[in-house]
């Protein structure tokens, strides 16, 4: 088999697997949003601070899936493995 074809195909496959990192952060963000909705229902007057806290927490939870996205982009656009063959 042509080694370049193998490396390219495996890179495309692993870029797809990297997208699965969105699974955990999606679950986490949904959980945070649900809890924030509960908190607003309990204390409607604290809506502003709850919203900003939720946004920051959501952004922090999102970081992991962003790392996955960046690895996928590196594999697809600037593949370092191609230099080795």
């Amino acid at each position: 088999m042509d080694p370049k074809a193998f490396v390219l195909g495996m890179s495309a496959l692993s870029a797809g697997v990297c997208t699965l990192s969105g699974l955990g952060s999606g679950l986490g963000q949904g959980y945070a949003a649900g809890k924030a909705a509960e908190a607003v229902a309990r204390q409607p007057e604290a809506r502003g601070s709850i919203l900003s806290t939720m946004l920051i927490g959501g952004a922090l939870a999102e970081t992991c899936s962003i790392y996955g996205l960046i690895i996928a982009l590196i594999l697809l656009m600037a593949n370092p493995l191609l230099a080795l063959i």
Partner: peptide
């Protein structure tokens, strides 16, 4: 990375 990944 957060800003870069989201915008890109």
């Amino acid at each position: 990375f957060r800003l870069f990944g989201n915008v890109l």
